[in-house]
Structures are given as C-alpha cells and as structure tokens.
Design a protein around this nucleic acid. Structure first.
Length: 771
DNA sequence: TGTCTCATTTTTTTT
DNA sequence: AAATGAGACA
C-alpha cells in the first residue's frame, strides 16, 4: 500500500482506522474526498471484495469520479463492483430489485418535480380545496418535509408539530392531501424522489429477511457529505450498517447547506451518541486555498454559534486578499465581471477553466450570461433549464415512460395530445374521472372507454383507442429493440418528429434539433453499454435519466469555458479564481431567511462559496437590481462585515457605491431612493433625440414586418423616455404594443405603447427575440 | 378543440 | 421577466 504514504498524518489515521464507527470532520479543502477514496482503496487491498462496500455520495458525478480514482489505485478488476452512488440511485437500485416487497413492480417510474406538481394540483382541485391556500409548491414542501423525516400520511395526521404549522397556514386538510397524493403515486406505480428513501426504510424495516440480506452484503458503509443527510437517510444508513457498524461518515458541519430539503445537522452532531465508541478524526489542514482565503472564511464562519470546534489552517502562500467591489446596478456588476475575466484571460493568460462565478439564485445567471456573450467569453451554466427539462425532451421521455409503465398517468396526460390528436381537456378529464372511479390506469380506460362508462363521443373514442394501441405497440417493441432503435421508432410513429419537422419557425427547428440530439445521445448510450456488455434496452435508460442532475450532463469539454452556478451546486468543487456575485441584503442572505438559524445557514453558504477559491476571490454587490420585473434597491450584505477586515481589499468601482463598513445602511421609500434617483440611471446611449417616424405594425404582424417578435405580447417596460429635448428616466408600466420600429441593427427596438388607463404614449425599450 | 389575449402570480437553494 | 391561468372567440 504505497499510496497511503501520500497522505498526511491525520488523513492516514482516518484511512487506516477500521475497528469501529468512524466520524471524520473534514474542514473545507482538507482532502475529504481523498480520505474516502483512499479508505476504500485500502479496504480493497485488505481483501474486502468491492461488492461488499457501499459508498454513498452527494452527486452521481462525485461517485463516478471517486470510482475512477479508486480504480486507478487498485485496478479495474478489483474496484469494478463497488456499490457507489447517491442515496437516491442506490435506493432506486435496491427498490427495483425488491419492488414486490413494497407493493410496486420493478418498472416503477420516478416522478420528477413537474409530475409531482401537476398531480398535487389535480388533487387539490378534486378535493375542492382552495388553490390559493393549497399552493402546489407549499403542499409539496410539506410532503417532502414529512418524507424526509420518515413520516407517512398516518403519522402525519397524528403529528402535532405538523398540524400546528398547517393550522398557521390554514392547510387543515393537509393530511388528506398527503394521503391521496401517496395513493395516487402508488396507483401509477410511481415514486417521487423522497419515496426512494422512504420506501427503502420501509422495505428494510418490514422485511427481516431482506434486511439481513443487505446487511450481509454491505460489510462496510461509507457516507460522504454526512452533514447534508436527513433523518430518513440516517435511518437507511443505520439499517444497512447494523449490526457490525463498520461505518465511516465524512462531513463538515460548517458546510451544511441543505436544511431546506430536510437535511439535519443533528446527524453529524450526534453521531457519536448513536454509535457508541465512535472515533472522531478531524482534518484541519486546508490544501486548497491561500492563507488569506482560509482566514477570511474562518473569520466569517466563527460568527456562527452552533458548530464543532475546529481551526482550519493553510500553509500555502499568504496570497492576495479578497477583493470587494460595489456597483450601481446588476448590469454594471455583470459587465464589470465580464471585463475582469477578459483581462485576466488576455493579460494573465488565465485559462477560462480556472474561473467560476457563483451566485445565490439561478435568476442571476441571465445578466451574467448576456455580458459573457457580448465579450465572447465561453461559459458553461449549471442549473436552470437543463437539456432533459425541455418540453420536447420530456415529451419524448414520457412516451418511453408510458411504454415501460402503463400506469404512469402523468406521462400519459403529458403526451396524450402531443402532437395534437384532437384529444382535449374535456376528454382527458372524463377519462381521468372514470379511471379514478374504477381504480384502473387511464390507459386502460382509453383502450375500452365503453367498459368503464366514460361518456365520450364515438369519434373521440376512436382517437383514444388509436392512441392506446400505439402505446401498446411501443410496449411490445420495447422488449425486442435496443434503446436507440426504440427511440427512433417512438419519435417517428408518435408523430413528434414529423410535427417538429413541419414547423419552420425558430422554435420548431430548435425542437427538431433537440430531438435529434436526444437520439444521438441514446445511440451513444447503446454503444457504451454494448461495449460494457450491459443491457441496452430503453428501460434502464429511462430509469437513469430520471436520476440525472445537470452536473451529469455531458457537455462539450473540448473548449475551455468559465463556470457559472449557484453556490449550492458548487459544493465540493474548487477553482483557482472565484467570483461571488450579488452580495446584498435580501439576496445573500435571502429575504426568506431571517430567523437566526436560517441566517447561520446562509452564512455557511457564503463560507462554502469562499472556500471554493484557491487563489483569488472576488466579491461583488450592486445597489440596484431587477427582480421579478421590478427594480429593487439594496444594501451590501451583512456578511461582508462578518469577514475580518484585514483580509479584504476594497476596489473602486465606476460609480461610488456605499461601503459596507463606512456608510450607514440606506432606507428606501416606496421602492425608490430618497436622494436624487437620476444618479442611479445611466441614460441609454442610443436614445434618439427626436422621435422616429413610426411605421404602424400590429402586434400580430410584428414578426413579419420587423423580423423580430416579442417573447410575450405585453413585455414592454419603459426604462426611459425621450420627449424630444430631454430624456426622462424611470417610467415603468405595461401596455399593449401598438407600433414597432427597429433601431439600427440592434435587438433592442423601440415600441410605442399605451399604459393601462392613461393612454400615454411612451418610447420604450424591450427585449426581443430574433427569428 | 384550439388559439389568442389579457391578467395575475411568482418570490431561493436541489437529489 | 417569465410562467401560469382564465376567458373570449373562431
């Protein structure tokens, strides 16, 4: 085991200790993954077969990379059969094998957020509850929280603590909604993400024989990012590790940032109580960042109260201080970051791959993206709309899902009229009602509407049957074809491909391109699996796709790009240069986090962000920012003051913005600055001095005349307005587009529109898509 | 049934 | 800003 020499003393101690439960508290950048990797490699060289080691990670990508590294250390044959993946994917694997024990079949579907949401909406409507109170997001959050705490509908109905919060929110019928929701999932042979965890616990709890089988299989259980596990995950680990308790968990309480999805820091804080004799190791030396960065992060995190004491230190060079810059607007912030990156690249020969921009919310990526594009900086955005979330891709996959699982009603409703088959809402509702009444899948009702007494016109019945037959055909073909052949068949026979091909608008061409991309992705998948000697049917593909995250998507790595992502998704990553944008009150920390413990979590989030940086860390904030179509003003984040001043260097910005230290927080009145507001607005450089002769264009013919079309009809919002001899600022309002005329070759065009009520003519700038 | 228009709501982070 | 929902109309 030469490789063990590559570790420092405390790392080595953690790796070679195997006499009982083990808790490794690993500071940021202290080689946590390294310890885990080497520990597994160590176990393998001790003669433990890979098939008897279970390692749970936070993302599939982390699992893949770790496995690669282990194989590199011990060889392919030794490491190949490791059980390694996220809780969700490992649970899905176990549940598919044992599906009948929990009352599902092995082909169960995994409902994603959109499926869940649509189901909740239907249930709320059916139970005749007010959808203003029972908002789908709220309902789902409640259900998810219950499942994260291993509380089933019965327990929920009994629970005082849940009832109390539900009363506050006037969600008196929440328990019934939860119960019906679960019933419907089961009827559809489907699970949501939380079910994967919950049913695994149920499986192991209720079936001693199964439990023993898995306990005997997993001689060693290792968990990464333990600070972000929830109670149900705690139970899974406990059930699998018993009775030998050869368990090793690794984590950092200072980086716990997922409480919103049920993670509880208690798991790591009380580990030693739950596992008697558990040994604790601390890794405190940071190998990633310069001293200044580590010290700055430390000074911030020490403002939190509850934490396991540790002193992370770096022995690298002192390095540069963190740079702080304030800007007057989000636009200015974005463009300054872009310029900065450009000059780093040009002047310092900094590779784009070494740079990341982190932010609190996905919405912030839009501005940044635009500015990067302007300067031609290649970028990669994680999060937001991923390939598999696009409508046409989801539709295609819904066909696969329905073929694999004929009870998958959400998939059916998604595609029953895609492409248009003349099966409208009314018909679908009738089918759904009949299916509900007769307790059968909707597809069954469509096969024989008369049997289930669905009141449907004969002509429509024909359409339904034709659809059902098509799905039946797919289900048959699915068995005999490989994934690629099958996907091709479905896209052609369903009419989706033809439908996209007919459409010659930009969106249509896009759609077709995406479908083709999906096909070529599936072809690749089949090739890979053939090489590995694995099953090439569509079933496995569908199952895997539902557990993919945007980090897993294969993007073109041949070009060096900068990375843009939320702080949450940056967990576990590192970059030589990190920008953290939008350090403002009400954004970071978020408006929705105001209790003490929530604020501490936000502070940990910033801690995570800063500790991603190896050499340079830039912090920025803006005094004004567009949010939800409204301009809002804010003060610098309170967290800036939590960082020890000696580690920060304030840079000057184009406009003088208030400093977090020297200037008192400003107050705003009615969303507007009390002092002279015009200072905050930079006049549009191209604003014409005199009105242009308008060409009258109706909104309908807009695209024909100008080659431009508004993304939504009423999108125009005036930011400034030209009266002939002066430019007035800050005129906001929506109106109907009356006339359009193009300005130079710019995507921004001027629109004349009248505002609600007063019929004022305004010259406004609107963002338009080129077609 | 499908399309278009208008109005209201959303309002963080994700496996 | 963008998504969702309701209502009008062909």
């Amino acid at each position: 085991m030469q490789f063990i020499d590559e570790l420092n003393e405390s790392q080595r101690a953690a790796v070679s200790y195997n006499d009982g439960p083990l808790l490794v508290i690993a500071g940021a950048g202290s080689g946590k993954t390294r310890v885990l990797t080497y520990k597994i490699a160590y176990l393998l060289t001790q003669g433990i077969p890979a098939g008897h080691i279970l390692a749970l990670t936070f993302t599939n990508k982390a699992a893949r990379e770790m496995k690669q590294r282990i194989i590199h250390l011990v060889g392919e044959e030794v490491g190949r059969y490791l059980w390694m993946g996220t809780f969700h994917s490992i649970c899905a694997r176990i549940l598919r094998a044992e599906a009948e024990h929990v009352g599902f079949t092995r082909d169960f579907t995994i409902y994603d957020q959109a499926d869940q949401k649509s189901l909740v909406k239907k249930i709320v409507k059916e139970l005749q509850l007010d959808d203003k109170i029972y908002k789908s997001n709220m309902v789902l959050a409640r259900i998810s929280s219950a499942k994260a705490n291993f509380i089933d509908p019965e327990a929920y109905a009994q629970s005082d603590s849940y009832a109390k919060i539900d009363r506050l929110e006037r969600l008196y019928k929440m328990a019934s909604v939860y119960s019906e929701y679960n019933r419907r999932l089961r009827a559809a042979n489907a699970m949501d993400f939380d079910d994967l965890l919950m049913y695994t616990v149920l499986l192991l709890n209720n079936n001693p024989e199964v439990r023993q089988r898995y306990q005997q299989r997993f001689w060693h259980v290792l968990v990464d990012e333990y600070q972000d596990t929830n109670h149900t995950q705690y139970l899974i680990v406990k059930l699998l590790a018993e009775p030998q308790n050869h368990i090793c968990v690794v984590g950092d309480d200072a980086q716990s940032i997922y409480s919103f999805r049920g993670a509880t820091i208690e798991n790591i804080l009380t580990f030693q109580n739950g596992y008697t004799g558990a040994k604790l190791f601390k890794l405190e030396r940071n190998y990633r960042s310069t001293q200044n960065i580590v010290n700055a992060a430390n000074s911030l995190i020490h403002k939190n109260k509850g934490q396991i004491y540790k002193e992370v230190y770096s022995e690298k060079e002192v390095g540069e201080r963190l740079y702080l810059t304030g800007y007057s607007s989000d636009r200015e912030e974005s463009s300054a970051i872009a310029k900065q990156i450009m000059s780093m690249h040009k002047l310092n020969h900094r590779d784009y791959e070494q740079i990341a921009i982190l932010y609190r919310t996905n919405a912030q990526s839009r501005n940044l993206e635009e500015e990067m594009r302007k300067l031609g900086i290649p970028y990669r955005i994680y999060g937001g709309m991923s390939f598999y979330q696009r409508k046409e891709i989801r539709d295609a996959i819904a066909y696969f899902r329905l073929a694999a699982n004929s009870s998958d009603d959400e998939a059916l409703e998604r595609i029953v009229n895609v492409p248009k088959r003349g099966i409208g809402d009314t018909t679908v509702t009738r089918v759904r009602e009949a299916a509900l009444r007769e307790n059968v899948p909707m597809l069954r009702v469509m096969q024989s509407p008369q049997v289930y007494a669905a009141e449907i016109a004969a002509a429509t019945q024909k359409k339904l049957q034709a659809f059902a037959e098509k799905i039946g055909l797919f289900a048959e073909k699915m068995q005999e074809m490989n994934a690629f052949e099958f996907a091709q068949l479905v896209l052609n026979q369903s009419g989706m491909m033809a439908d996209a091909a007919i459409d010659t608008t930009a969106e249509g061409i896009d759609r077709k391109g995406n479908l083709e991309e999906l096909l070529s992705g599936i072809r690749q998948y089949v090739e890979d699996r053939t090489q590995q000697g694995e099953d090439t049917s569509i079933t496995d593909f569908v199952h895997e796709v539902s557990l993919l995250t945007d980090q897993d998507e294969n993007s073109d790595d041949s070009v060096a790009r900068i990375t843009m992502m939320t702080v949450h998704s940056a967990k576990g990553l590192e970059f030589p240069v990190v920008f953290i944008a939008g350090l403002e009150e009400n954004l970071f920390p978020s408006t929705y986090c105001q209790t003490e413990s929530e604020l501490e979590e936000e502070r940990r989030l910033l801690y995570v962000a800063i500790t991603r940086a190896e050499q340079e860390c830039y912090l920025t904030y803006a005094s004004s920012r567009w949010r939800n179509g409204q301009l809002s003003f804010s003060n610098p984040s309170r967290f800036l003051k939590d960082i020890d001043r000696q580690y920060i260097q304030q840079l000057s910005a184009p406009s003088k913005e208030p400093s977090p230290w020297n200037d008192p927080p400003r107050t705003w009145y009615g969303g507007e600055l009390l002092s002279d507001p015009t200072e905050r607005y930079i006049p549009h450089a191209n604003a014409p001095k005199t009105p242009i002769t308008p060409t009258t264009v109706s909104s309908r013919n807009l695209k024909a005349t100008t080659g431009l079309k508004p993304r939504t009809p009423q999108q125009a919002i005036a930011t400034e307005w030209n009266t002939g001899d002066r430019i007035e600022h800050k005129v906001f309002g929506k109106g109907t587009i009356l006339r359009v005329y193009r300005e130079n070759d710019n995507d921004k065009i001027e629109i004349e529109f009248d505002t609600k009520g007063t019929k004022t003519l305004l010259l406004a700038y609107a963002k338009l898509d080129r077609i």
